[in-house]
Amino acid sequence: MDLFLQLLVNGLINGSHYALLGIGFGLIFSTTGIVHFAYGSVYTFAAYVAWFTASAWGFSLLPAMAAAILGAVILGVLCYTLLYRPLELRRAPPLIPLIASLGLNIALENLNAIIFGSGARTADFGSSVMFLGPVFFTTVHIWQVVSCAVILAALVLFLRKTRYGRAILAMTDDPHMARVVGIDTQRISYLVFALGSAVSAVAATLILMKDGASTHMGFIAVFMGFVAVIVGGVGSLKGVVAGGFLLGIVESLGLWKISTEWQSSIAFIVLFIMIMLRPQGLFSIARR
């Protein structure tokens, strides 16, 4: 039972990380329709920025995270400006931006290695271990769960209570109708790329504390974010969060009965089952 409780807690912690990744990726995907696989490289860049500012300038956690957010926002907006926006103006078929995003991800992954080096990087912002009965966790884990809850609450308020938030929801529901009623969809696209990239930077900074940063860390990040979106339902914020936590819990509890070498396959299994049984995801857009 002690092992089960520990795995469950680990699943909730990992699920909060996957939920953050899904929120950022899903915000871009559901609003613009762009499968932004270069999101993984933006996430990696943010982790390296946090590491650099901490190691070179001695920044503590929050200033390093702020620098990572700024760097990710700039890179994310540049991705849209230099690649996706020109393709939109040319009315490129949906497959073209998808292929372009894969190419951009490879290019940015190599650029990260050139700028920051190909070795693993770690940053120690201070972390302690705590026990709750037979279960242990660290302050980093608490940060992950709390940041997910805070970002989710802030994003819900933003989407429901602000003019730009309602414009995002309108564009998610029907981009064509949003343009008809006078919404500047280009500005909204810039906004969601900035917001999604900012969310990825928060997740990246915390995973830097937990596991360190490497040039290839972006693949698993964008994949887990993508799975959370598909499992939860495209366009549904609560669905993405539920999908992230479901993925984290199933992945963690899977270690109770199977070898750790098969852990990476669990996300593929979850994705396959959801596509077969409920392709629209746990929550449809109409139930947002």
Rank of each mutant, 00 (worst) to 15 (best):
V240N: 07
E251L: 01
L157E: 12
I23M: 15
G244C: 07
G233P: 07
N110D: 13
L108P: 04
G71M: 03
S236V: 02
L95Y: 11
T172V: 13
S200G: 10
Y190M: 06
L155T: 07
F45W: 14
F245Q: 02
A120Q: 13
C79K: 00
I183D: 12
G33A: 01
Y43V: 06
N105K: 00
I96K: 02
G235E: 09
L83A: 15
V140T: 15
S127K: 12
V180P: 05
I151L: 15
L253N: 08
V180M: 12
L159D: 11
S284R: 13
P86F: 12
A38H: 02
V240T: 15
A221S: 13
M171K: 03
V77W: 08
A68R: 00
F268R: 05
E109L: 14
G40T: 04
G254I: 04
F226Q: 03
L271P: 06
L159Q: 10
I34N: 02
R90Q: 15
I34C: 07
V222F: 12
F136H: 15
V231A: 11
A167W: 05
L246H: 00
S236T: 02
T185W: 04
M1I: 04
V180N: 00
N112V: 13
V35L: 15
I168C: 09
F158H: 11
V199F: 09
D173Y: 00
F283E: 07
D173Q: 14
A107W: 07
A107F: 15
M224G: 06
V49K: 01
M224C: 14
R91T: 10
S118R: 10
N10W: 02
A50T: 03
I168W: 07
